[in-house]
Simulated scan of single mutants.
Amino acid sequence: MKKSALLIIDVQNEMFQENDPVYEGNRLLYNLKQLIATARSRAIPVFYIQHNDEGLKEGTEAWKINAEIAPAMSDSIIQKTRPDSFYNTTLEEELKRQGIEHVMLAGMQSELCVDTTCRRAFSLGYSVTLVSDAHSTWNNSVLTAQQIIDHANATLRWFAAIKTTEEVLFTEETGA
């Protein structure tokens, strides 16, 4: 069995603002809480990926990880500045140090940071599981958020096993 880690990508306060909240944010948080609790109960490392840029300045309230899924002392927090969670970060070094061969991905944004991190993890040789109902985004000028999520789940199957939160929670290997 491959050693797994759970990656929670960019679930920051900015994504839950009242004037433009992420699509189905409450469902997203509910599923993330279940995934995190299960990972911790099975001693599976949890990594929080936190985006930093001009719109999400380090230390601001918008930049902070959402309190409903707050990191525990045992969790790792990786700072990034690009959609790729591996680019110019310590993520790969930390995964290798802990002997991680399989990553489970959840968070935001489906078509940006989740997609890019999924493809990069696959290219780096990791076994990848995308939790199909634990990532989200916003409508854009062409597609609804649900269409974007559905497209990500359909497209990323070439790079990852696509599993629901329930499938991950009740798989003995937790998605591996």
Rank of each mutant, 00 (worst) to 15 (best):
A106T: 15
T165D: 06
G125L: 01
A5E: 05
A106R: 03
A37E: 14
Y126F: 15
T129Y: 04
W138H: 13
M15N: 11
E61Q: 11
Y30M: 06
P45C: 07
T90H: 10
A154W: 05
Y30K: 15
Q147R: 06
I44G: 03
T137A: 00
E172R: 11
E166W: 06
V168G: 05
G107M: 14
L56K: 04
S85L: 08
L35R: 09
T164I: 04
I69A: 02
Y48P: 04
K80Y: 11
R42W: 06
E68Q: 15
T116C: 12
N19E: 08
Q12V: 03
T60Y: 04
L7I: 12
H102L: 01
I44P: 02
I77G: 00
Y30Q: 10
Q109T: 14
W63H: 14
L130E: 12
A145S: 12
I8K: 01
V114Y: 04
L35T: 08
G99M: 03
E14H: 11
E173W: 03
T89I: 11
P71H: 09
N13G: 03
G25C: 03
K57H: 10
L105I: 15
Y48F: 14
I77T: 09
S141C: 08
D10A: 12
S41L: 11
P71C: 03
L6C: 11
S74G: 05
M104S: 12
R120I: 12
N52Q: 14
M1A: 15
Q34F: 06
I9H: 09
L7S: 00
A145V: 07
I9Y: 11
R42G: 05
L112S: 12
L130M: 12
A121E: 01
L143H: 07
C118T: 13
C113N: 13
I65M: 03
I162V: 13
D20C: 13
S85C: 07
Q146D: 14
A70Y: 07
E18V: 07
L143N: 07
I148M: 10
K3F: 08
K163C: 02
R120T: 13
V168Q: 10
S76H: 10
S74T: 15
T89P: 05
